[in-house]
Design a protein around this nucleic acid. Sequence first.
DNA 1: ATGAGTATGTAATCAATGATTACATGGAGG
DNA 2: CCTCCATGTAATCATTGATTACATACTCAT
Lengths: 214, 214
Amino acid sequence: MSAKSGRLPPAERPYHHGDLRRVLTDAALKLAEEGGPEAVSVREAARRAGVSAGAPFRHFESRHALMTAVAEEAQRRFRAEIERALAGAPADDPLQRFRKLGLAYLRWAMKNPAHFEIISSGRHFDHDAAAALSHDNAELVALTERTLAEASEKGQLKPADLKQVQIAGRALVYGFARMNVDGHFPRWGVARGEAGRMAEAVIDLFIKGIAKTA
Amino acid sequence: MSAKSGRLPPAERPYHHGDLRRVLTDAALKLAEEGGPEAVSVREAARRAGVSAGAPFRHFESRHALMTAVAEEAQRRFRAEIERALAGAPADDPLQRFRKLGLAYLRWAMKNPAHFEIISSGRHFDHDAAAALSHDNAELVALTERTLAEASEKGQLKPADLKQVQIAGRALVYGFARMNVDGHFPRWGVARGEAGRMAEAVIDLFIKGIAKTA
DNA sequence: ATGAGTATGTAATCAATGATTACATGGAGG
DNA sequence: CCTCCATGTAATCATTGATTACATACTCAT
């Protein structure tokens, strides 16, 4: 695919890139990792891909569109990681699965702060143009709802408005992840390794609050 | 002060502005309100102040420095509003004050999304250069800690690790505010007016979880 | 008062970036 | 083989953050 034009010197890149769209997306993902969402620039991505500054606009209408592709890929990875983590959880203990869900969520968010920010802040891309992302996200939301409902049906929860519990849980986890991403912890005198344990403690505190055995 | 130079035509602005720093900060605050933090540009602030594009740099080392001033003013307003709201709360019921604290926090955050984002995201300004902001913030943190401790001393709380409760509460409220700022609610099918009631419900759910009477 | 020194504003300029346009290249299919 | 079209390049523009040389006027010591 890339060595089709034999008459060109092998060191030269062929005129057509092959899969520039993907290469640009990957470069942008890396730029975000390195310097945060603001550090993603079309030109720098083009530079890293070894193409001209105008080339990316053949594949992305605008910088926003590039960020949308970045967000979709990040969300895909996020979902995959969550589901991978959940695979090793006991199927007959929904509350335990709910806990694992929260932990996996936080672990990924803390390990990939820039990507987490991109997919969650809604400021970096156009949500309406990201159908795949919306789907992946809805899938995760449905997963937590289902898990919580199962826990309730199995009698693992105190009587409560499940919708409210769902939102509170989401706010709690999202807030914790955000506090990490937004740099609150260092200013609170929370060491880097400590945040992980605190995440677990906070989740357990929440679960103890909604579980029946409390 | 502004009409000192009598020989100039009255319609003309005097060469020296008077309080350009403040005017620029106000313009930037308004720009943020209108188009979010990214919409704040040094040049547009200068334009609105009626000065040249280079003038702001006499007062702010960089755009970041301007944003720092914006953040300090926003944080000042935030703190003032919280304390104002808390003034009308019963002094002898710390748990009730804790609730009011959370509600006032969310009300301000939802009413001033851009300013809230600026002061809380840590990405828009230099925290180390914002001593006043750090002080105001620390003051609010201390206030909630004190209130929670009082509630505990008065026997209003279940036995628990207060530090963990503090962090969980903060994560919950911050997460909810962030979900609003980050545009999660419309995508969840939550109407605009509904968010306010949900905020109250979530706070009450949390308080019921930590209160003794539960 | 008055002249020196400084604070504050202007104009011109630079580099980086997002975006557009005209043109070049070459792969795919009749 | 030749045409069409997807994809890349080069040149260009407007906007923005930032710097520099210069202009203005406020302040303060004498």
